[in-house]
Amino acid sequence: METILRGESITKKFGGFTALKNVEFNIKRGEILGLIGPNGAGKTTLFNIISGAFPPTAGRIFFEGRDVTGLKPHQICKLGIARTFQIVRPFNNMSTLDNVLSGALFGKDAVSDLKDAYERSLSIINFVGLEKKKNKLAKELTLHERKMLELARALATNPKILLIDELIAGLTPLEVQETMRLIGKIRDELGVTIFWIEHVMRAVMGLADRIIVLAYGEKIAEGKPFEIANDKRVIDVYLGGGLIE
C-alpha cells in the first residue's frame, strides 16, 4: 500500500522545552494508525504540526509525496487533511446543520452551491447519527453529541485523512462502542485514512492496524497492537502495565 502521510524527523521546541524529538511516522492509505502515550507526550503537538497550527522546529511533513511543512491550516484542510480537537470546539451558537454545512462549504472540494452543501451535510449528519439534533444549537448538545458533531464537521470537508484527537474520553461504555463502530465505518465506507490519538487502550488495540507510542516527545515503539501490548518499554512507561487492561 502506498504512503499517504509521512513525517521526517519532526522536532518541536517551545522555548527551551523539547515537546517532540526526531519523530518519524508513516501512514498507508486506508490504514487506521493509533497514537498513544502518557499525558504530555507530545501527541496533540504532532497533530498541530501536521494540520498547520504551527511549523515544526525541524523536520518535514509529506502528504501524498508533497512537502506540506509550514502550510496554513486552511491550505492543509483544502489538500484533504481534516482534524478534530481534543477539547471540542464546535461553533456553539450555530445549529448542528450549519456547523456541518460550514465544513462542506469550505473544505476540500468545497461545494459552492448552498443547496448541494446542505444535501451533503444532511447525509453526513445521518452518518454520525445526529439527524434528530440537526436543528439544535451546538451548545445545547451533550459532550458525546458535540464530539460527533466535530467529527461530522471534519468529515464534511471531504478529507483523505482524518486526525482524531481523543474521541472517547469521558463517554459511557455504550457511547464508546458506538463511537468505535463509527470510526471503523469512516475508514470502511468513506475510505478515509485515520490517524487516531486515544487514551483508552482497549479501544485503540481493538481497532488500529498499527500503533505508535510516544513518551516525553520521543517515539518509543511502533507496531501491531499485540506487539505494542507486549513491548517492554511501553509497559514500563505505562507504570508496569497499569493502563493496559
Binding site: 494540520s51 491550516p73 486552511h74 481534516a82 464546535p90 456553539n92 460550514s102 462549504l105 469550505f106 470537508t157
Partner: peptide, 25 residues
C-alpha cells in the same frame, strides 16, 4: 446569506476552528 456570510459567522464563533475547516480567515 451566501458562502461569505457563513465564513463570517464561523470567524465570529471561533477563528481557529474556522481555519481548520478550510476558511482563509
Amino acid at each position: 446569506n451566501s458562502r461569505v456570510g457563513v465564513a463570517f459567522r464561523c470567524i465570529v464563533e471561533d477563528e481557529i476552528a474556522a481555519s481548520f475547516i478550510g476558511i482563509n480567515v
